[in-house]
């Protein structure tokens, strides 16, 4: 079937229909042959951003690798909701070992694939490996293994699904939890309600500091961008990292139907910069289309409810705004600005 040539204004919008696009620009999700790697029947909550993110990412990776993919999963919501005994939602070879070792297990799978390829007289292994985990499994308990995998430049794409807390155990704070957020271990009580300010870890930047070939952030609100990044990552060898922003209705106290909206607002406020980096240097950022105030994002989530109410905490909201503005400056998220963060590395790995 032929396709209709599209005018420029159509591809630049969010509304453009797939059937209007040339096939190479259509999303993997829109195709009949998509692999449904994470199939229906899993037990995720309604509106779960992590389920969506995993589905998008793994289907895209399957397409990019001609279905020669193995996934290693850290313990967490994604693992639990996808494999309730005796069922599995995974249509791909998949292994769950522990909470904190997904990156290392993936290194092992990649090593085995390498040996297999060498024995078959191939230069590079056909079978590719993805490790995936939540923010807790990535930025906290799995961080040692992750950093080791990066440093050795093992042939693994690690995907972090960041919902900003330990959701599977009932919404506790992780090092990816934003300040002021209510979690089960940072309750909105006392003089400094919610999560403390001035803490937390920026793992995409730390990944870049390892000088690995590819680091990107992505969001479930931008399917095409997410798929593009996964595809690009799979076209490269060595250690790669994609950090995907995945709202969690249960943990955030947001409406199930607001998952995509929240993800978009996180990007449009500047709170979650969406960018790409190669060998430590930012190569591309998704510009903010229409800058939104942080309040628009915060208000939709009960985890920040204590900032509003009868006596809004204007100071704290302003502090959030300052955080967003700092990101906008650091990553050059507006207009023709350029990113000012990065770890230039003259000698590529």
């Amino acid at each position: 079937m032929g396709h209709q040539d599209v005018k420029f204004y159509q591809t630049g919008t969010f509304t453009v229909g797939n059937r209007l696009l040339p096939p190479e620009q259509r999303s993997v999700q829109s195709e009949i042959e998509r692999t449904n790697s994470l199939n229906c029947g899993h037990r995720a909550c309604q509106g779960c951003g992590e389920a969506l993110g995993a589905r998008y990412a793994i289907d895209a990776a399957m397409r990019a690798t001609n279905n020669q993919l193995v996934a290693v999963n850290a313990t967490g919501c994604l693992e639990v909701f996808s494999t309730p005994y005796p069922e599995t939602s995974w249509q791909i070879p998949w292994i769950h070992s522990l909470f904190g070792n997904a990156a290392a297990v993936a290194t092992g799978v990649a090593a085995a694939a390498k040996v297999r390829a060498r024995k078959a007289g191939q230069q590079l292994p056909e079978v590719r490996v993805i490790a995936q985990g939540g923010d807790g499994g990535t930025t906290d308990i799995g961080f040692g293994c992750l950093s080791g995998m990066f440093e050795r430049n093992d042939d693994v794409l690690y995907i972090c699904y960041d919902n900003q807390a330990y959701m599977n155990t009932g919404v506790q704070r992780s090092s990816a939890t934003p300040p002021a957020a209510r979690t089960a271990t940072t309750m909105p009580v006392g003089e400094h309600p919610g999560n403390d300010w001035g803490q937390g870890k920026n793992v995409p930047l730390i990944a870049m500091a390892h000088g690995i070939p590819y680091v990107a952030t992505a969001s479930v609100s931008d399917l095409r961008d997410l798929e593009y990044k996964v595809k690009k990552a799979m076209s490269m060898r060595g250690a790669r990292y994609i950090h995907i922003f995945v709202p969690c209705p249960l943990g955030w106290g947001s409406a199930s139907h607001d998952t995509i909206k929240l993800a978009r607002l996180a990007k449009e406020t500047g709170l979650f910069p969406v960018f790409e980096a190669e060998y430590g240097e930012v190569t591309n950022v998704s510009k903010i289309r229409q800058k939104q105030p942080v309040e628009a994002y915060l208000r939709l989530q009960r985890r920040f409810a204590h900032l509003f109410g009868k006596k809004p905490q204007v100071e704290l909201i302003a502090r959030f705004q300052a955080m967003a503005d700092q990101n906008i400056h650091k990553f050059g998220l507006l207009g023709n600005d350029k990113a000012v963060v990065g770890f230039p590395d003259s000698e590529h790995k």
Binding site: V70, V72, I95, S97, L98, G100, N101, A104, V105, A106, T107, G108, V109, A110, A111, A112, A113, K114, V115, R116, R118, K119, V127, G144, C145, S147, G148, E151, R152
Partner: peptide
Amino acid sequence: NCEYINVESEFAAMSVAIGSSAAGART
């Protein structure tokens, strides 16, 4: 036809071993 991996901890050593063994390699 052997990969030798200098890992960052024993936890990683056994974890890499889990991955390679599950992927069919003598480990």
